[in-house]
Protein backbone atom coordinates (compact mmCIF):
# COMPACT_ATOMS: atom_id res chain seq x y z
CA UNK A 1 0.00 0.00 0.00
CA UNK A 2 2.73 2.39 0.97
CA UNK A 3 4.64 1.61 -2.21
CA UNK A 4 1.63 2.33 -4.38
CA UNK A 5 1.00 5.60 -2.50
CA UNK A 6 4.55 6.72 -3.23
CA UNK A 7 4.22 5.68 -6.85
CA UNK A 8 1.14 7.86 -7.25
CA UNK A 9 2.82 10.80 -5.54
CA UNK A 10 5.94 10.57 -7.63
CA UNK A 11 4.03 10.12 -10.89
CA UNK A 12 2.09 13.30 -10.09
CA UNK A 13 5.39 15.09 -9.54
CA UNK A 14 6.64 13.87 -12.92
CA UNK A 15 3.49 15.20 -14.52
CA UNK A 16 3.97 18.65 -13.00
CA UNK A 17 7.58 18.75 -14.09
CA UNK A 18 6.99 17.56 -17.65
CA UNK A 19 6.63 20.32 -20.23
CA UNK A 20 6.50 18.53 -23.58
CA UNK A 21 2.89 17.91 -24.57
CA UNK A 22 3.48 14.42 -26.04
CA UNK A 23 5.08 13.04 -22.94
CA UNK A 24 2.69 14.93 -20.68
CA UNK A 25 -0.29 13.31 -22.38
CA UNK A 26 1.46 9.97 -22.22
CA UNK A 27 1.98 10.18 -18.45
CA UNK A 28 -1.54 11.46 -17.85
CA UNK A 29 -3.03 8.47 -19.63
CA UNK A 30 -1.10 6.16 -17.32
CA UNK A 31 -1.98 8.14 -14.22
CA UNK A 32 -5.68 7.67 -14.94
CA UNK A 33 -5.53 3.86 -14.78
CA UNK A 34 -3.08 3.50 -11.92
CA UNK A 35 -5.76 2.34 -9.48
CA UNK A 36 -7.13 -0.48 -11.61
CA UNK A 37 -6.58 -4.18 -11.32
CA UNK A 38 -3.74 -5.39 -13.45
CA UNK A 39 -6.01 -7.61 -15.56
CA UNK A 40 -8.25 -4.66 -16.42
CA UNK A 41 -5.38 -2.54 -17.69
CA UNK A 42 -3.72 -2.70 -21.05
CA UNK A 43 -0.08 -3.66 -20.87
CA UNK A 44 2.67 -3.97 -23.44
CA UNK A 45 5.50 -6.44 -23.07
CA UNK A 46 8.62 -4.84 -24.48
CA UNK A 47 12.15 -5.86 -25.34
CA UNK A 48 14.97 -3.95 -26.99
CA UNK A 49 18.04 -5.21 -28.76
CA UNK A 50 20.99 -2.87 -28.45
CA UNK A 51 24.52 -2.64 -29.85
CA UNK A 52 25.82 -2.73 -26.27
CA UNK A 53 24.90 -2.06 -22.65
CA UNK A 54 25.85 1.60 -22.28
CA UNK A 55 22.83 3.87 -22.92
CA UNK A 56 25.08 6.87 -23.54
CA UNK A 57 27.18 5.19 -26.22
CA UNK A 58 25.24 2.23 -27.60
CA UNK A 59 22.21 2.34 -29.86
CA UNK A 60 18.84 0.63 -30.04
CA UNK A 61 18.71 -1.88 -32.91
CA UNK A 62 15.20 -3.22 -32.63
CA UNK A 63 12.05 -3.01 -30.55
CA UNK A 64 9.65 -5.91 -30.02
CA UNK A 65 6.24 -5.38 -28.44
CA UNK A 66 3.42 -7.75 -27.54
CA UNK A 67 0.30 -6.08 -26.11
CA UNK A 68 -1.53 -7.74 -23.23
CA UNK A 69 -5.21 -7.15 -22.73
CA UNK A 70 -7.78 -9.05 -20.66
CA UNK A 71 -4.89 -10.96 -19.19
CA UNK A 72 -3.87 -12.43 -22.53
CA UNK A 73 -1.06 -11.74 -24.96
CA UNK A 74 -2.42 -10.47 -28.28
CA UNK A 75 -0.25 -11.75 -31.09
CA UNK A 76 -2.32 -9.88 -33.65
CA UNK A 77 -0.88 -6.59 -32.41
CA UNK A 78 2.58 -7.91 -31.77
CA UNK A 79 5.20 -5.98 -33.71
CA UNK A 80 8.88 -5.93 -34.35
CA UNK A 81 10.65 -2.77 -35.56
CA UNK A 82 14.21 -2.62 -36.78
CA UNK A 83 15.98 0.71 -36.30
CA UNK A 84 18.63 2.44 -38.39
CA UNK A 85 21.87 3.04 -36.58
CA UNK A 86 25.00 5.09 -37.18
CA UNK A 87 27.84 2.86 -38.29
CA UNK A 88 27.84 -0.90 -38.11
CA UNK A 89 26.24 -3.37 -35.73
CA UNK A 90 29.79 -4.62 -35.21
CA UNK A 91 30.49 -7.36 -32.73
CA UNK A 92 27.04 -7.21 -31.11
CA UNK A 93 25.65 -9.09 -34.13
CA UNK A 94 26.84 -12.28 -32.50
CA UNK A 95 24.32 -11.76 -29.70
CA UNK A 96 21.18 -10.47 -31.40
CA UNK A 97 21.80 -11.86 -34.88
CA UNK A 98 20.86 -8.59 -36.57
CA UNK A 99 23.27 -7.87 -39.38
CA UNK A 100 23.81 -4.59 -41.19
CA UNK A 101 21.86 -5.67 -44.26
CA UNK A 102 18.82 -6.47 -42.12
CA UNK A 103 18.59 -2.80 -41.30
CA UNK A 104 17.94 -1.69 -44.87
CA UNK A 105 14.17 -1.47 -44.25
CA UNK A 106 14.67 -0.07 -40.79
CA UNK A 107 13.13 3.17 -39.51
CA UNK A 108 14.95 6.05 -37.84
CA UNK A 109 15.15 6.07 -34.05
CA UNK A 110 12.96 9.21 -33.93
CA UNK A 111 10.21 7.46 -35.91
CA UNK A 112 10.55 4.39 -33.73
CA UNK A 113 10.22 6.32 -30.47
CA UNK A 114 7.17 8.16 -31.77
CA UNK A 115 5.65 4.84 -32.90
CA UNK A 116 6.41 3.24 -29.51
CA UNK A 117 4.74 6.09 -27.58
CA UNK A 118 1.66 5.72 -29.78
CA UNK A 119 1.55 1.96 -29.31
CA UNK A 120 1.92 2.20 -25.55
CA UNK A 121 -0.40 5.18 -24.99
CA UNK A 122 -2.38 4.42 -21.81
CA UNK A 123 -0.62 1.06 -21.48
CA UNK A 124 2.03 0.05 -19.02
CA UNK A 125 5.35 -1.18 -20.32
CA UNK A 126 6.44 -4.59 -19.08
CA UNK A 127 10.08 -5.59 -19.42
CA UNK A 128 12.50 -8.02 -17.89
CA UNK A 129 15.20 -5.98 -16.18
CA UNK A 130 13.26 -2.87 -17.22
CA UNK A 131 15.74 -0.20 -15.99
CA UNK A 132 18.16 -1.00 -18.80
CA UNK A 133 15.59 -0.78 -21.59
CA UNK A 134 14.00 2.31 -20.06
CA UNK A 135 17.34 4.08 -19.75
CA UNK A 136 17.93 3.61 -23.48
CA UNK A 137 14.49 5.08 -24.14
CA UNK A 138 15.13 7.95 -21.77
CA UNK A 139 18.29 8.94 -23.62
CA UNK A 140 16.10 9.27 -26.71
CA UNK A 141 13.37 11.23 -24.83
CA UNK A 142 16.09 13.63 -23.80
CA UNK A 143 17.33 14.01 -27.37
CA UNK A 144 13.92 14.25 -29.05
CA UNK A 145 11.72 16.00 -26.48
CA UNK A 146 14.41 17.51 -24.30
CA UNK A 147 12.71 16.00 -21.26
CA UNK A 148 14.13 13.95 -18.45
CA UNK A 149 11.13 11.79 -17.44
CA UNK A 150 10.62 8.64 -15.50
CA UNK A 151 7.95 6.12 -16.52
CA UNK A 152 5.85 3.78 -14.38
CA UNK A 153 6.87 0.34 -15.68
CA UNK A 154 6.50 -3.27 -14.63
CA UNK A 155 9.77 -5.12 -14.22
CA UNK A 156 9.31 -8.89 -14.25
CA UNK A 157 12.83 -9.33 -12.89
CA UNK A 158 12.01 -7.19 -9.86
CA UNK A 159 8.75 -9.06 -9.28
CA UNK A 160 10.65 -12.33 -9.42
CA UNK A 161 13.35 -11.06 -7.05
CA UNK A 162 10.77 -9.95 -4.50
CA UNK A 163 8.90 -13.24 -4.74
CA UNK A 164 12.03 -15.29 -4.23
CA UNK A 165 13.21 -13.13 -1.32
CA UNK A 166 9.76 -13.39 0.26
CA UNK A 167 10.12 -17.16 0.12
CA UNK A 168 13.48 -16.69 1.90
CA UNK A 169 15.38 -18.21 -0.92
CA UNK A 170 18.97 -17.25 -1.44
CA UNK A 171 19.41 -15.93 -4.93
CA UNK A 172 21.68 -18.08 -7.01
CA UNK A 173 23.66 -16.54 -9.84
CA UNK A 174 21.44 -16.30 -12.87
CA UNK A 175 18.31 -17.26 -10.95
CA UNK A 176 16.58 -14.09 -12.11
CA UNK A 177 17.39 -14.43 -15.78
CA UNK A 178 14.40 -14.59 -18.09
CA UNK A 179 14.82 -18.28 -18.93
CA UNK A 180 15.46 -19.34 -15.35
CA UNK A 181 12.48 -17.33 -14.10
CA UNK A 182 10.19 -18.84 -16.74
CA UNK A 183 11.25 -22.35 -15.82
CA UNK A 184 9.84 -21.83 -12.32
CA UNK A 185 6.38 -21.32 -13.85
CA UNK A 186 6.46 -24.31 -16.18
CA UNK A 187 6.87 -22.02 -19.20
CA UNK A 188 8.46 -23.46 -22.34
CA UNK A 189 12.03 -22.85 -23.44
CA UNK A 190 12.34 -20.60 -26.49
CA UNK A 191 15.51 -21.30 -28.34
CA UNK A 192 15.44 -18.34 -30.70
CA UNK A 193 16.06 -14.82 -29.44
CA UNK A 194 15.03 -11.52 -30.90
CA UNK A 195 13.26 -8.51 -29.45
CA UNK A 196 9.85 -9.92 -30.33
CA UNK A 197 10.36 -13.39 -28.88
CA UNK A 198 11.93 -11.95 -25.75
CA UNK A 199 9.03 -9.53 -25.36
CA UNK A 200 6.67 -12.51 -25.75
CA UNK A 201 8.69 -14.50 -23.22
CA UNK A 202 8.60 -11.60 -20.79
CA UNK A 203 4.85 -11.10 -21.27
CA UNK A 204 4.16 -14.79 -20.58
CA UNK A 205 6.29 -14.58 -17.46
CA UNK A 206 4.25 -11.65 -16.21
CA UNK A 207 0.96 -13.55 -16.74
CA UNK A 208 2.40 -16.40 -14.71
CA UNK A 209 3.63 -14.07 -11.99
CA UNK A 210 0.25 -12.35 -11.74
CA UNK A 211 -1.39 -15.76 -11.33
CA UNK A 212 1.02 -16.59 -8.56
CA UNK A 213 0.65 -13.26 -6.73
CA UNK A 214 -3.12 -13.03 -7.15
CA UNK A 215 -3.68 -16.04 -4.90
CA UNK A 216 -3.44 -13.48 -2.10
CA UNK A 217 -6.05 -11.24 -3.68
CA UNK A 218 -6.44 -8.88 -6.62
CA UNK A 219 -3.28 -7.30 -7.95
CA UNK A 220 -3.45 -3.57 -8.60
CA UNK A 221 -1.21 -1.99 -11.17
CA UNK A 222 0.19 0.33 -8.56
CA UNK A 223 1.34 -2.69 -6.54
CA UNK A 224 3.69 -3.91 -9.22
CA UNK A 225 4.60 -0.85 -11.32
CA UNK A 226 7.65 1.19 -10.41
CA UNK A 227 8.69 4.62 -11.49
CA UNK A 228 11.85 3.96 -13.42
Amino acid sequence: MLASFWLKMRLRKQLLKCKHVTLQRYLEALNRVLNLNVNDVELVALDLEMTGLDPQVDQILSIGIVPISHGQLQMQQAEHKLIKIDGSVGQSATIHGILDHHLEDAVSIEEAIEWLLEQTQGKFIVAHHAPLDIRFLQVQFQKIYNENVKLPVIDTLMIERNRLLKQHETLQDGALRLGASRARYNLPVYNAHNALIDALACGELLLAQIQAISTQGQVKIADIAKLT
Binding site: G71, Q72, L73, M75, Q76, Q211, T215
Partner: peptide, 14 residues
Protein backbone atom coordinates in the same frame (compact mmCIF):
# COMPACT_ATOMS: atom_id res chain seq x y z
CA UNK B 1 -2.20 -18.41 -37.62
CA UNK B 2 0.63 -17.49 -35.19
CA UNK B 3 -0.29 -13.85 -35.53
CA UNK B 4 -3.92 -14.52 -34.69
CA UNK B 5 -3.19 -16.33 -31.45
CA UNK B 6 -3.78 -14.97 -28.03
CA UNK B 7 -1.76 -16.47 -25.23
CA UNK B 8 -2.95 -17.07 -21.71
CA UNK B 9 -1.59 -18.54 -18.53
CA UNK B 10 -3.65 -20.78 -16.26
CA UNK B 11 -2.39 -21.15 -12.72
CA UNK B 12 -3.23 -24.34 -10.86
CA UNK B 13 -4.77 -22.32 -8.03
CA UNK B 14 -7.38 -21.01 -10.47
Amino acid sequence: CCKRLTIGYYGKAQ
